[in-house]
Amino acid sequence: MSQNYAEHPSMFRNKPFGFILSLLLIPVVIGVIILVVWYLKCRSTKLEINGDEIILEQGLLSKDRTELNTSSIRTVKISQSLMNRLLGVGTLSIFTAGDTPEIQVDGMPRPEVFRELVKARQDQA
């Protein structure tokens, strides 16, 4: 099993203005609370490709784990605003069957690398 992509959502690159605002609010103490909660939320979400499986793990104390086989994936959609494109992050939506995404994660770094890895795995199968 080779692991080529294992990332957590990015804090600063996903929402740079929210990050700067949180830093400005540190003297009021609410900025520290916002940053800690945001950091824990980002670190408790992980998207990875392991072999022919895509695994999304979410949760800090209790875990929610979603596994998809790359052969069952129909579409990988990347949504990026102009700022997201400049900073290299985006929202990944993975569709298997139906109109709702099986997996959707905001703020993922290098989303185009993820899509290319999924395509390569599908071509190998």
Rank of each mutant, 00 (worst) to 15 (best):
Q3K: 15
Q3C: 03
N4G: 05
N4E: 09
N4W: 08
N4L: 12
A6Y: 00
H8K: 05
F12I: 09
P16L: 01
F19E: 04
F19P: 04
I20K: 01
L21D: 01
L21H: 00
L21W: 15
S22M: 07
L24R: 07
V29R: 04
I30E: 04
I30M: 09
I30L: 11
L35M: 06
L35F: 00
V37Y: 04
Y39M: 13
K41G: 02
K41C: 00
T45P: 08
I49G: 15
I49H: 05
G51Y: 12
D52N: 13
I55V: 15
I55M: 10
L56T: 10
E57N: 15
L61H: 06
L61R: 08
S62P: 06
R65S: 10
T66V: 15
E67M: 10
E67T: 15
N69W: 09
T70N: 06
S72F: 13
I73C: 04
R74I: 03
R74P: 02
T75H: 13
V76C: 11
I78A: 03
I78E: 06
S79E: 15
Q80S: 01
S81Y: 03
S81F: 13
S81P: 07
L82I: 08
R85D: 03
L86Q: 03
L87T: 01
T91A: 07
T91V: 09
S93D: 14
G98C: 14
G98T: 10
D99Q: 09
P101L: 12
P101S: 08
I103D: 05
I103C: 15
I103P: 12
V105M: 06
D106E: 14
D106L: 13
D106M: 14
P109C: 03
P109V: 01
R110P: 07
R110N: 13
R110I: 02
P111F: 06
R115H: 05
R115S: 07
E116T: 08
E116D: 12
L117K: 11
L117H: 07
L117T: 01
V118D: 07
V118M: 08
K119S: 11
Q122E: 09
D123M: 12
A125C: 02
